[in-house]
């Protein structure tokens, strides 16, 4: 059963609205996105900056509201649950924020940071909350836990802070964990620890994870399926194992080729795309990727490709008429 179902979701941000909140132009951050995440899977979202992946995460966690479409977690519409019972909603889905430095209040200890959600949402007493925080720290291998409970954020390394963030996101036993770039602040030599921790947590708790990252290797390593976003749209959904060798969309192929520069992971010639990502305020007509695509034809310039589905796989490109 799918735990998260996103259907034709739109989020437009007004550009320079007048005093009545009306705007002539909009940033098309998330522009008709659909996909579903099965219970217990790690689902990845990749794309370059400005493609809408963080906006998508914020919509799913309910930090901002979508304009149109539907996001359902365990069959319940996010906008509804959020309105009717926000506390229950927060227990359903939690987020691991991107920046392990900004996410902390520098004046509060780790104990404060970890017990807050337990006191506010978990209905625990102070003592229970502290012992629960203790367990959580052990779960993310920050031991001795008593030592870490009394530390301030600046006394921890970035990797340790990232563990605390994961512990906090898990504290209410959510069904869905949204992790936005959980390792992008870490050095390569320590990144593996957090990757392994996420794997371990996922396996033990059978939790569903939506992992957002610009780092293709991390997404490949952790996820079962991956959605590729470009300018607010999902252009391809594929099995992670196919990412480096069997992607279909020309954008995915170019992204893979550029990302693994030097390591020669992808096959064939290096693909160097022309130009830059166009503005999401006035996205190109037809297929949004056509100005940079070397396969673009007249139809790509005029007509937006309809996504083709088959077996959990999706591609939105005129090059393909069937999967």
């Amino acid at each position: 059963m799918s735990l998260l179902k996103v259907e034709d979701v739109f989020k437009l941000f007004p550009v320079r609205p007048d005093i009545f909140g009306r705007a002539k132009k909009f940033v098309h951050a998330v522009d008709g996105v659909s996909f579903s995440v099965e219970e217990g899977e790690i689902f990845g979202v990749i794309g370059e900056s400005g493609c809408g992946k963080t906006t998508l995460a914020r919509l799913i966690v309910g930090l901002i509201d979508y304009d149109r479409g539907s996001i359902k977690i365990k069959g319940e519409e996010v906008s509804e649950v959020k309105r009717l019972d926000v506390e229950r909603f927060r227990r359903t889905v939690q987020m691991v924020p991107q920046d392990p430095v900004m996410a902390f209040n520098p004046r509060k200890t780790i104990k404060h940071f970890l017990t807050r959600p337990l006191l506010l949402h978990g209905g625990l007493g102070r003592e229970e909350a502290v012992s629960r925080a203790h367990q959580l720290l052990e779960e993310v291998s920050l031991t001795p836990a008593d030592f870490f409970l009394d530390r301030y954020p600046h006394e921890l390394s970035v990797g340790q802070r990232q563990r605390v963030l994961i512990a906090r996101a898990l504290s209410l036993n959510p069904d869905l964990l949204v992790a936005d770039e959980p390792v992008s602040y870490l050095d390569v030599s320590v990144r593996g620890q957090i990757i392994n921790l996420l794997k371990e947590v996922h396996k033990k708790r059978r939790i569903t994870v939506l992992l957002i990252s610009h780092d293709l290797s991390v997404v490949y390593h952790l996820c079962s399926r991956i959605a590729v976003m470009y300018l607010g749209k999902v252009v391809e959904i594929l099995d992670a194992r196919d990412l480096f060798s069997k992607s279909l969309h020309p954008y995915t192929q170019a992204l893979v080729s550029s990302f693994s520069v030097g390591f020669g992971i992808s096959r064939g010639e290096r693909i160097v795309l022309k130009g830059e990502v166009p503005s999401p305020i006035e996205p190109p007509s037809g297929c949004r990727f056509h100005p940079r695509c070397s396969f673009a034809t007249d139809v790509c310039r005029k007509l937006e490709p309809k996504p083709l589905f088959s077996d959990g796989r999706l591609v939105a490109c005129h090059l393909y008429d069937r999967l």
Partner: peptide, 18 residues
Amino acid sequence: LLESALSVYEKDRPAKFI
């Protein structure tokens, strides 16, 4: 360092780190 970077390109073994 190389192991840490490259192990992530493999799916079925733990990620390496220092």
